[in-house]
Amino acid sequence: MRNFWEQLGKIDRRIVYLFVFLGASAPLFLHVVPKFKASPEVVQAYQAIDELPAGSVVLFSIDYDAASMPELQPLLEAMLTHVFRKDLKVLMMGHWPLGLPLGQIALEKMAKRYNKKYGEDYVFLGYRPGLAAVILNMGKEIRTVFNVDYKGTPLDSLPLMRNIHNYNDIALLVGFEAGAVGDYWVQFAQARFQQKIILAATAVVWPDLYPYLQAHQIVGLIGGLRGAADYEVLVNQPGSASTGMASQTVVHILIVVFILLGNLGYYFTRTWRKPT
């Protein structure tokens, strides 16, 4: 028995990786999609979009890149589905240049699916450096930051942009966050210009954003793959996030088991090593 616990403490990390690999892969092959109920903060975000009248403008900010793609890309697609179904108008920009093509791919895919026209139903603004300066200047006049769209087309030549000048013309802002940009959106766009904001974040960032939700500085918070799966359920369009939830559950159970075994091993070997 003693030998067992000692061996457990010395287990090769690659064995753990193998278990995690099998735990994550098996549910994908078995096509298991667990049933779950959307969490209240995601429902809150969904309702904030659902309540907007047709024609309202929603600004999406792509503040993530490929490293966060599995968590945020399915969510972006689910939210674009919701927005286009509701006949809302979409502006897209971003503070992470490496992530902007991901936003563009999702936007064009969904626009094509729902027969939306560039310049009339949606506009892709692109990227400008400056973060806080960009957010603040957009509160006065978007054209001081983005005088042209990402293709170089002057904004005034796009029908959708003719009546959009600042946050007063944007009904809702959705920030897709893999870092600290969400704080800037809240601290500058919300605090100074009372912009309504939903934050959709990776699971790493997500817990840090709860204070904003509790203080009603944001109207919804969606976190990680679970949040994306919740949103897919709400728009009734199961995708890769919902598929991944079974793997997520299995690996979580595995990790809990490993933590318990590791702690038990540590406890017993420490007890036995104590001098009598």
């Binding site: 995690v20 690999f21 994550a24 892969s25 994908l28 490293a67 966060s68 793609m69 599995p70 968590e71 990776t202 699971a203 790493v204 997500w206 817990p207 976190g223 990680g224 793959l225 679970r226 890769s240 598929t243 991944g244 793997s247 997520q248 690996v251 979580h252 990790i255």
Partner: peptide, 16 residues
């Protein structure tokens, strides 16, 4: 815990 969830999500994304 949340960070673990994020890292596992990335693994699932790649495996998918």
């Amino acid at each position: 815990g949340s960070t673990i969830m994020a890292r596992i999500s990335l693994l699932i994304g790649r495996l998918y």
